[in-house]
Design a protein around this nucleic acid. Sequence first.
DNA 1: CGGATAACAGATTTCAATATCTGTCATCCG
DNA 2: CGGATGACAGATATTGAAATCTGTTATCCG
Lengths: 197, 197
Amino acid sequence: MPEEPLTPARILEATEDVLRRFGPAKATVVDVARALGVTHGSVYRHFPSKTALREAVTERWLDQETGTLDAIAGEPGPADERLSRWLETLFAFKRRKAGRDPELFATYLVLAGEASETVERHIATLVAQLARVLADGRDAGAFSLPDEDPVVSARAVFHASARFHDPAYAAHWSAPGADADFAALRALILNSLRPGP
Amino acid sequence: MPEEPLTPARILEATEDVLRRFGPAKATVVDVARALGVTHGSVYRHFPSKTALREAVTERWLDQETGTLDAIAGEPGPADERLSRWLETLFAFKRRKAGRDPELFATYLVLAGEASETVERHIATLVAQLARVLADGRDAGAFSLPDEDPVVSARAVFHASARFHDPAYAAHWSAPGADADFAALRALILNSLRPGP
DNA sequence: CGGATAACAGATTTCAATATCTGTCATCCG
DNA sequence: CGGATGACAGATATTGAAATCTGTTATCCG
């Protein structure tokens, strides 16, 4: 049989499988190697450490969101609608991930907790997308920002909406009033940015 | 010697001590009884279970805040100033608790995680205080709320400010930009409530 | 008789021996 | 030689027996 060459991509795939099956506490590099039919030494040829391997998987998972959200941030059209859609989409994404397979979500929650730097980069990406929408809106007269730097307002918006994207709150996302709470918060944010008298 | 009678108050005091010394994982009812010079059976005469004992301690700890905050919510003066002060005070309280004795804070964080009902009651109290300030402000023309029910807006404000009172974010409170982030978020909230054109 | 106790069963935790894992490296193979 | 291997040391995790804890109750004491 023509053996597939061992590549980082294949290793990542196998790592995801192993994590899904065994969970973050029991998934080992030896398991990953076993799933690939090689010894764990071979895995270490492509990833310098178990930590690096897990970080790569985490990054991949986080990057699922950024593409769609970046597209929304870059669309033409009124900035307030874009912001609204962006917030809704982020919430929908997270809620779907958490609801579909809670165990896998919990697994990635643990991974994210271990990879603070990766998470920080991801957050910086999202804040940059927000800042872009806010700056667009300001330039078009749709928003009035209290600060010169749109990143300051973007951070405030990101923090204000944390309850509906931070995985720490995942348990609340399926509660009865969650949609109403989200709508109220989105209204609060959008209302804040609307230009005053 | 005139032995003090065994009261719930004395037991709570001893429980706090034991929790402070041993942490949430190792503090036992037997330890509490030992600290009081009685057997653990006597403790069970005043509290039906270890869980109930811990909940009582948790409630006590959470109630430290509510008094001061309720006073601020009830003060005379402009509602926007009251809201601003309320948010600042809540943040200051939490940050102080977390900064002074991180280990004890971590202990109470675990306790709070175990006592979801107690925490929900506490949150309901805080939201009610917020709703009061918001309703006052609306009646005085200082705020315009998007919803008839001030509790809806109060929840939104509470959720928006979660980053600066939810213990899950305690690690961020001592970071360099924390004060600036708080100021931006407070501005976002207050700006949102200001009546429009 | 109200309140504390000591003894107890079942659940939970501790601890130390044992096994597994991580990361490295000298060696082997095509 | 580039890439996989198996053996290895030190770190981490598992396991099961022993100890401790939780919650109950029959008994004791003032």
